[in-house]
Design a protein around this nucleic acid. Sequence first.
DNA 1: GTGAATCCTATGGGTTAAGTAGGGAATAGT
DNA 2: ACTATTCCCTACTTAACCCATAGGATTCAC
Lengths: 154, 154
Amino acid sequence: MDISAKTDYAVRALLTLADAQRTDARPVPAEVLAEQQDLPRKFLEAILADLRRAGLVTSVRGAAGGYRLARPAGQILLGAVFRAVDGPLAEVRGLRPHETAYTGAAQHLPTVWVAVRASLRRVLDEVSVEDVLSGKLPAHVRRLLAAEDAWASR
Amino acid sequence: MDISAKTDYAVRALLTLADAQRTDARPVPAEVLAEQQDLPRKFLEAILADLRRAGLVTSVRGAAGGYRLARPAGQILLGAVFRAVDGPLAEVRGLRPHETAYTGAAQHLPTVWVAVRASLRRVLDEVSVEDVLSGKLPAHVRRLLAAEDAWASR
DNA sequence: GTGAATCCTATGGGTTAAGTAGGGAATAGT
DNA sequence: ACTATTCCCTACTTAACCCATAGGATTCAC
């Protein structure tokens, strides 16, 4: 699982947007988002375009323009952000996990790939931008973090 | 999460190897593994070299040579296979999840990345080659698969 | 109309993924 | 000793992708 710079930037931009909207309803220019999280502005623009096409943000053109969350931060799931900028959560050689097929000793492998995807969904489709902003993650996610070596390398 | 062809091939080769060893102790040539799972032979050779360096298989050179599992299939975890051929399970812009650092609204983001990694570990570091071969996955993995839409796209 | 901002298309450089090619080194069977 | 088999190693290729950047066209508040 390589979380791309694109996805990382997208989440950070949305967090910054969510934070700004708590005190100010005006749209936030890409330039400001880029500054606050130290992101390359032109690249960020392309990412915001993806997020707009996916319906996660809305944009306002012209002077005093910028970006807004398309809905409350609590209703924007990280899974949606991943899919918007990087496509499906899990793929195996370009196939969706449930589309893979094998013969012989590898017969049951699709089950494993589907389980991998399901475990990603359990995190990404149940954590919202609001959750991350406030640091209050769902209980079952906190339970994952409680594993003794969750913060250690392997 | 893109599961690479390399990783896919590695797991399939190990499954085939485990299967063969249930009835025959002789080492299995790369050519045979390639045939049985329809993998490009030369590419597979490179992958088997990774697995050998990681201590997952042993090799025997010369006529009547081939590959063997370095230990019982029940003691080879998928996580080890992933790491052997593709490096760390999760990375963010080239960093390990626990090494990421952010300011401002993204403060709590490392927690999320660590949770993502933890959830992958819960599957990959608890399922062995033997489990996949027999189709008998651990209970908590089967529970993931029981989610109503585990097999559906999103 | 002017300046601020998004939107669109094109482009580039570097890295990686996936696979190929060719031959050297070891070994079992004869 | 010879031969066929098989692993081992280095180098190469080809295409795709990732991470941007450039330059302008369009929209809009004032």
